[in-house]
Measured scan of single mutants.
Amino acid sequence: MAAAAAAGAGPEMVRGQVFDVGPRYTNLSYIGEGAYGMVCSAYDNVNKVRVAIKKISPFEHQTYCQRTLREIKILLRFRHENIIGINDIIRAPTIEQMKDVYIVQDLMETDLYKLLKTQHLSNDHICYFLYQILRGLKYIHSANVLHRDLKPSNLLLNTTCDLKICDFGLARVADPDHDHTGFLTEYVATRWYRAPEIMLNSKGYTKSIDIWSVGCILAEMLSNRPIFPGKHYLDQLNHILGILGSPSQEDLNCIINLKARNYLLSLPHKNKVPWNRLFPNADSKALDLLDKMLTFNPHKRIEVEQALAHPYLEQYYDPSDEPIAEAPFKFDMELDDLPKEKLKELIFEETARFQPGYRS
């Protein structure tokens, strides 16, 4: 834990890192770190609560700039109880001085990944967590956004079992017609939660990839272990087919990539493993919904509104309290091709509203 900075004593240090967030945020305490930044909790002297502050230093890398800009653009436009918001952003007053960006968010005690390492969940908890994931996802999908990296560590939890989806750095506007060349190379989302079509096709992607990830998360809540822990690309596919069985001819016809289709045709026939054999203690309604989410063919996979209306979630289902976005989200430009200098300018502009004396 960093010592509390005395008023006016300059930035606090946390594990050798400068955290320049005073005077409003003090009493910093280390939480963890990701690929390009550290997260601390801090005391907000204005709202009198502890908050989470993520320090991001992305400006050396085009990919990190892209992810940072995506996350900020999306989260500043989203407003939903099951999606983490941005409360404040701290950065230098000029673009030349801006080396880091500090993002202030609600402090959540833990995440689903940490929880599943230590606790076996009751059916009631599984049901409530799944409902909140789908409630947040309904809003995301209504904005025409794909999260693309749903996994237990991106689901934040607090002691009252509130759940918030975080990390929109890989999110995209849904565009089933656009052929994202190089899709697989830039697709760094965790393999275990990846839909089979991501490994088999490169053309376009749809909201059904997020539903697949939610199915993987439900299976993990039922058993405290990942359902498809593939060691590499082909191993991942083999794990999936080992449980779902061989795809039907109709399902194979959806695979545009001939090499991928021929690979699947070359494999020995596998039978589907019954879900109640894998999860003998699970609620039968939970397994019915799991089956509809972990469907090989993305066109037959359940959609988020149908999933919310499934009998497993009937005690929570309330369409009048499951809000959607006001308007579909649009990125003005494809960020993939922009140089990091341009992305830095866009991050600077996007964060201006939090600067003292800002006038829109």
Rank of each mutant, 00 (worst) to 15 (best):
I347W: 02
A9S: 05
M199N: 13
G10W: 00
Y317K: 15
W275A: 07
R301W: 06
R15Y: 11
T26M: 09
K99M: 01
G357I: 15
I302N: 00
N253G: 08
F331L: 00
N27A: 11
G169W: 08
E341R: 05
G16Q: 08
D251C: 11
L115D: 09
E81C: 11
D251T: 11
Y205S: 01
L156D: 02
G242L: 09
L294Y: 03
R50C: 12
D167G: 04
Y64M: 10
T63C: 06
P226I: 07
W192R: 00
L150Y: 11
I347Q: 03
P356V: 15
T159H: 08
L265H: 13
H232M: 08
F168N: 07
K272H: 12
A260W: 06
I126R: 07
A307F: 11
A307D: 02
F78Q: 07
M13Y: 07
A9R: 06
D288C: 14
F279E: 05
Q236D: 04
R79P: 04
D318P: 15
H147L: 00
L237T: 08
E12A: 09
E341T: 13
L112A: 11
E81W: 13
D149T: 07
Y263G: 10
A195E: 01
E33F: 13
P58W: 15
A7I: 12
E345N: 07
L28H: 11
I255T: 10
K344I: 09
Y30A: 12
A219T: 01
Y128A: 12
E33P: 06
D100R: 13
E81F: 11
L69Y: 14
A325D: 15
P11W: 05
E12N: 10
L116Y: 08
L244R: 15
N253H: 07
H232Q: 01
G85C: 00
S266H: 12
Q132E: 08
E326G: 09
A171K: 02
V21S: 04
L258W: 11
P311S: 02
A42H: 08
S41Y: 00
L313S: 04
S208T: 01
A2N: 15
K344Y: 09
K99G: 04
L75E: 13
I217P: 02
Q355D: 10
E71D: 01
E33Y: 14
A195T: 01
F279L: 00
N201V: 09
M221S: 08
E334F: 15
I209T: 05
R15T: 11
K259A: 04
L264E: 07
F59A: 14
L69E: 13
Q355P: 15
M108K: 00
K203L: 02
N158L: 03
H147F: 10
F168W: 03
P274V: 13
D175I: 12
R191P: 01
L157K: 05
D124S: 09
T206M: 02
S266L: 14
D321I: 14
D235T: 06
F354M: 03
L290P: 00
G22A: 08
L313C: 15
I84K: 05
V304F: 03
P311Q: 14
Y64W: 07
I217E: 02
T295H: 11
T160E: 06
V101L: 00
L343W: 14
R301V: 04
T159S: 00
N47M: 06
I240M: 05
E96A: 08
F354G: 06
C216P: 02
H125Q: 01
R353Y: 08
E322T: 15
W275P: 03
P176W: 05
I86A: 15
I217V: 11
S57V: 09
R353L: 08
Y43W: 12
D124Q: 10
M199P: 05
R91T: 15
Q119S: 14
K270E: 06
N82R: 06
Y187R: 05
Q97R: 07
G169I: 11
P152W: 02
L155Q: 00
L75M: 00
D100V: 01
A9L: 12
E197C: 07
I95R: 13
G32V: 01
I84D: 06
K207F: 07
N123T: 12
S142F: 13
K138P: 02
A42W: 14
T68G: 14
I84T: 15
M38C: 12
N271A: 13
I53E: 03
A307L: 11
L343P: 07
P196F: 04
A352H: 15
N123C: 08
Y30Q: 08
H269T: 04
D321C: 12
G22P: 06
V304P: 12
I324V: 12
F354N: 08
E349P: 13
D20K: 13
K138H: 12
W275T: 05
L69R: 15
Y317E: 15
R277A: 10
V101K: 03
L163V: 13
A6Q: 06
H147C: 06
A7L: 04
K344H: 09
N281E: 09
T68C: 15
F129P: 07
D283E: 00
P229F: 05
L134R: 04
G204N: 13
L150A: 12
A219R: 01
N257G: 08
Y233M: 01
T118Q: 10
L115W: 12
Q17C: 14
T110H: 11
A9G: 06
G85P: 13
S142G: 13
S266G: 00
K342H: 14
Q355F: 15
Y358W: 06
L218A: 04
N123M: 12
I211E: 02
M333G: 09
Y102R: 06
R172M: 04
N45H: 12
K99D: 04
K285M: 12
Y316K: 11
F228Q: 08
E12Y: 09
F19L: 00
G16C: 11
G85S: 03
Q105Y: 07
G182A: 05
D44K: 13
I103N: 02
V101C: 08
E220S: 04
K344W: 12
Q355K: 00
V273E: 00
L121F: 08
V18E: 10
V214P: 01
G32T: 10
Q132A: 05
